[in-house]
Each structure stands twice: as structure tokens, then as C-alpha cells.
Amino acid sequence: MIDSTSTQIIVDSLKTTKAASGSDWILHHVMDGNYLDFSPFFKLYLPHFELFGLDLSITRHVIFMWLGSLLLFIVMTRVAKAYKSSMVPKGFTNFWEIFIVFVRDEIAKPTIGKGFEKFLPYLLTAFFFILFGNFLGLVPFSATFTSNIAVTAVMAIFSFIVTQYGGMRSNGAFGYFKGLIPHGVPILLLPIMIVVEFLGLLTKPFALAIRLFANMTAGHIVVYALISLIFVMQNVAWAGLAIPMALFIYSLEILVALLQAYIFTILSGLFIGMAVHQEH
């Protein structure tokens, strides 16, 4: 429901703004680029870099992905260090412990069930990677790397790989693929079922990637569209309406940033749980 609404919002906003202003500056803000955008002050251009014919330039999203990862690593190692001195968490440690325990007890444990500990590092890393990316995108002059389809696709592929690995690990490679097809299916239907189930396997990560990408993109586009209202109408008085609404959407984005990290992780957990415990 949220997905369909957000995609609708993106489509409508893009159509209207493009029709009205005749430029795709919003897309340039949302998309990846080879510069750090500090407009209206300056743009910091990043070097182009190619290897084996593949464009491996360090782009804006790569920079912010590294920034987010570095931040995440520093935060979590500090939390880990805090436990060495005292078992009783305080302030900073306590704050992050809430999220870690939440991922463990509310996401991994109920969705995967028995043997969830093995998948906990992956789920935790995915959750915090997306969380930091989402929140980093809300900082002015930064970019949301989780709103890039390449990033979300890779994340979804990792979830897919972990799911398949977990399924084959606990059921055996043959048993896992046999378990994908429901019991009691007539042999005549088998060719169709195999195709359907195979497609079903692929749609799950596809939906994961599109959901995260669309949700993280939609809010930004709406904020930009609301701001552009001032320029489209060519009257600064529109700021009185546009800025509060943009602020409202921005606040909503904070909620969405948290929610999407949660949804991505819990769905990954669900898929892993379904693959690991096939008996149902």
C-alpha cells in the first residue's frame, strides 16, 4: 500500500514538475553523480576511474556509502568496547543496544525462529547499513545512497543469496528445491509450478530492491517538488505554503527512514525463515 502510494507520488510529482519547469533538476538531485553537491556554494568534482572497461568512479553515492559505513563501524566498535568495561550500558551504548536488541528479538527471532543466531550478523549489518544510509540522506548537502537502485539491488541480491544459502544449508540443495513446490501437486502441473515458484523466488528480492529504492526516493522528490513550487509559481509568497509542507514531508521521511530499514530487515528475515523452515 505504501509502496504503491509512494510510486504514484513519484510519478505524479515528476510529471507535474517536468511539465511545469521543463527541467529535470529534481532527478539530478536524487540520482548519483560525479560531484559532491554543495550548491549554491560550490560543487566538488570527483575523479573518473575505470578498470577492465567497468566504470568504477568514486561517485557521490559511493562517498556517502563509505561515510555511512565508517560512521557505523566507529559507532558499533565503540558500543562493543563499552561492554568490556561494564555490563551495564549507559547513554550512548544504551541507545544503540535498543536497536540491536530490537533486531535480535523483534526481527530475527520471530521471523527465522530456531537457528536465527547464524543470520543475525547479516540482518544487523543490513539493518544498520540501510538505517545509516537513510538518515545520512536527510542531512543537508548529502545524498541518499539507499535511494539508488544499484545499491538496493545489491542489498536485495545479498538477501537472496543469504536466503538460498540458509535454505540449502538446513534442507540440503535438493531438499530445498523440492520443498519449494507445494505437496500434492499433480505431476501434469509440475512444469508450470516449477516456473511459478522460480519466478516467486526472484520476485522477492526484486520487491525488496524496488520498495527501498522507491520509498527513499519518493520523499526526497516530494520535498524537492514542494520547494520547486516557489520557482514554478515565480512568487516567493508560495514559500509560506511550500516550506511547512516540505518540512512535514521531511519529518515523515524520518519515520520512513526508520521504517524502511525495519521493513527491509524483517522481510529478509521472513524470506530466510521461510527457506530454512520449509515445513508448512
Binding site: L54, D55, V151
Partner: peptide, 8 residues
């Protein structure tokens, strides 16, 4: 973007 996917 293949490069971004690689870096990710």
C-alpha cells in the same frame, strides 16, 4: 550503475 553496484 555497475560501478556503484561493485562498490556497494
Amino acid at each position: 550503475n555497475g560501478g556503484l553496484a561493485f562498490w556497494t
